[in-house]
Design a binder for these strands. Structure first.
Lengths: 337, 337
DNA sequence: CGTTAGCACTCTCCATACGAGAGTGCTAAG
DNA sequence: CTTAGCACTCTCGTATGGAGAGTGCTAACG
């Protein structure tokens, strides 16, 4: 069994590996981390930890490297949950003091903040197996031939679209459309809006019915909506990391993070745990990429809205990343709660 | 002097290099491009072209590679201006048939389109030494504690911001603010809006004056505005190119493209030429990066709004890229004209 | 006189070899 | 159980030696 001393050895190996990014040998381990144990004794301990699957050896005569299982044990049982440095807490709170409530802006700022706190790429996703409900919907006239479509949802965020409309559509027509659409659609999940049977609307709106159909397809989740509520920021942080010294690896991660389906799977895989850590092959999509993911769930009321996550190499400072992700999610939930 | 035959040789070298990305030798050149000349004769021609600076030699016994000057000559005098494949023209026109007139969305779609047409990263910038004028400004109430700020400019695009406001601010107050702000600010260049002396506004708006100041800072170009009108899309196209097989080069380009100041300089360097090509060291910022840039100017009326550009390795298919950039700029200008 | 064939020379690239360095596993002594 | 010592293994950097491709030059040719 993993006794106390072996735990300390494992922790020491991981900590050193987090810093150096290079296989940890018994000699240097003994020197830097004077357990009062010699290198030879540590060799025995390391051999045991390897046999049990907590450590790997890149090749026969290299040092040891943590395995998925090793990191998992470390995260679950050895990690001392530090609290975030005061200064970083202040940054997070300051970020959510802003008054802007635009969906895309909000996601982007959050991802940017988290990436800059952790030094890894950050992802914020708000997709929708269970879509937010539409609270209100407004169609507002702008100058010559323009209109704004504003959709307020129960997520606390507002989606919007600005478009041009036929010149012969008077402000009064817009107002009429707004009231019909509001009456008909308010309270429905956004995902259903596209499927609403439009027969009634078509009769009520006469020759502008076609326009309505186009409008609805512009709402988030609609057919024409090209801007899924998912943001990745801080991709460039990867450039500096030794595990991404080959273009092929960087490219693979880029493709992973920008692939549409990744977002959906991410959500499915994470469920509604408040905080989740996925290491290496634990997350199917990331197998072979040597990536880890630390995420938190965004909620409003009882409902899961999405996730905020940090994606990085398996060799990441889980303590700090966990604290940062948790704190950001907490502030988000508070700001929109 | 560069006679007709030397021109043909230069063109052949460049064309072959565009395909192979590898130094072109006299032997293969003679084989593929039967000028009716032997390799030995071509060697003489190549030696002349090199001496005059149109070609470079990576090392003594490699083939020849076009220099900046060589590409320049090719672009200015040898390039046959092909017209864009019909299919691509259709894609471009289709893209601008959409009715959306949101500034950020518009820029993003344009960059994405251009990148996918050319296979290189595309940049769209609409910064502002000479900022667009504010046509109208509206402050609209949303459900509970929310408001939308819409600013329509004479660029044909609409900038917007959604934010939360104090609960005690009634719709009537918003309407009042809208009318005061509109009267005061309409017709002014956006860049000046932040500097407008607010004394009058403060008196007119009483206790909500502070809010106004915050609002104005959210307008594009304002202090708090974090979303400069500049978009880069298609960065991942670089991953496949042989000139970017080292992470360091990719990183350098990433930093160039995302650096704030790049956008401003880009504009300054391009002036108002309808179309511009900058090769390698011709553009100071891109020295040492072996990059080229093909750009077109976006205008509305007589005014320069910004630029749309493709950034890629010097070894790019200038003919096709030029055609694509030109066509996209033309359609943009038509769509918003 | 321009063009071409031939040839010696140069430079890169790749595969191989080899020693240095770091680490391991095992054995035997404390 | 812990530790020192030792033989062994594997990587990595450097050196070495063709093979391949291309050049420049010279001399012959139409």
């Amino acid at each position: 069994m993993v006794d106390d001393r072996k735990s300390r050895v494992l922790a020491a190996v991981i900590n050193q590996y987090l810093e150096s990014a290079e296989p940890v040998g018994s000699r240097t381990l003994a020197r830097r981390n004077g357990f009062g144990l010699s290198a030879a004794t540590l060799r025995n301990e390391l051999a045991d930890l390897e046999e049990w699957g907590y450590l790997d050896k890149p090749h026969t005569s290299a040092g040891r490297v943590p395995s998925d299982k090793g990191y998992r044990y470390y995260v679950d049982r050895l990690l001392v949950r530090r609290t975030l440095p005061a200064q970083e807490g202040v940054r997070i709170r300051a970020a959510y003091r802003a008054q802007v409530r635009e969906a895309t802006w909000f996601l982007q700022q959050t991802a940017r903040l988290l990436s800059s706190l952790t030094g890894y790429p950050a992802v914020v996703v708000m997709p929708a197996p269970r879509m937010p409900r539409l609270l209100s919907l407004q169609l507002l006239p702008l100058g010559e031939g323009g209109a704004a479509l504003l959709a307020e949802t129960d997520t606390g965020l507002v989606a919007h679209r600005i478009l041009s409309i036929p010149a012969d559509l008077a402000p009064a027509d817009l107002a009429h459309m707004t009231s019909v659409l509001s009456r008909e659609l308010a309270g429905r999940p956004l995902a259903e809006v596209a499927d609403v049977h439009l027969a009634y609307l078509e009769r009520a709106l006469g020759r502008h019915a076609a326009l309505v159909e186009e409008l609805l397809s512009l709402l988030p989740g609609g057919d024409t909506d090209r801007e899924p509520l998912a943001t990745v920021e801080g991709f460039d942080t990867l450039f500096g990391l030794p595990e991404f010294h080959e273009v092929a690896r960087i490219r693979a991660v880029w493709e992973l993070l920008t692939r549409d389906t990744f977002v959906g799977r991410l959500l499915a895989g994470l469920g509604d745990e408040p905080m989740a850590v996925r290491i290496g092959r634990e997350l199917a999509d990331m197998a072979d990429h040597d990536l880890s993911l630390v995420s938190a769930t965004l909620r409003s009321g009882g409902q899961v809205l999405g996730h905020v996550a940090v994606v990085g190499p398996r060799r990441m400072d889980y303590g700090h990343v966990l604290a940062a992700v948790e704190q950001v999610a907490t502030e988000w939930n508070r700001a929109l709660g």
